[in-house]
Amino acid sequence: MLTVSNVTKIFNPGTINEKVAINDLSITFHDGDFITVIGGNGAGKSTLMNLISGVYPIDAGSIQLNGKEISRLPEHKRAKMLGRVFQDPMMGTAADMEIQENLALAYRRGRGRGLKWGISHKEKELFKTQLARLGLGLEDRMTSKVGLLSGGQRQAITLLMATLQRPELLLLDEHTAALDPVTARKVLELSEELISEAKLTTMMVTHNMKDAIAHGNRLIMMNAGKIIFDISGVAKQRLTVDDLMHEFAKAGGEDLSDRALLS
């Protein structure tokens, strides 16, 4: 369970560029929640995710993951509990390292690192079966450098890496936005599969309203650093894109971005 309480984040305070990115925001993620997050540009979706993962410190409030205060921990310590996939497919993997080396790094997330060999035989077998289920033929290219792979392949590997050690919370930051539509759908299906299989508590930021409606058991809409709409269960299943647009207009939000309108 993740509890975000009265969190505020202000960028460039005291300057002409001051921006209240997150404004006294509170929300609780229950175990097994798969939450999709939508909102216009600058609504604070990614910022919220970055505050949870520790990319930036919060200015006020608290963030507790399963009863543990994490808002003062450095990013790498929070990473022990979090699985993350970024928007940029290049960001989640080390390009100059082999596929199996990348997986081995992720396999050690949250565990100590010592002078043992960086990858064991048993792990290679495990990685092979895990890669096979991606259906991309990567299980036969385990010693290839990740940099040789396409964006979609890299994003699929990043997903696998994020879930290789069960995360207490999975953070997906518009992780299909930079992919072509066909690849995006595949990566999204894979995400759904991994999440439902392990019943992972998940937060998925997306620009695509249809995706936000089709996936997850709960949907939140953000505007100006606040949550303006939070719907779950049966009500969420009945949701349509029109409903969302209506909600957005009602909240007096600025225009949804063109990308969101078109999708």
Binding site: H76, L82, G92, R109
Partner: peptide, 8 residues
């Protein structure tokens, strides 16, 4: 960024 995400 990736290194930090895998708790390095």
């Amino acid at each position: 960024k990736m290194a930090r995400a895998v708790s390095i």
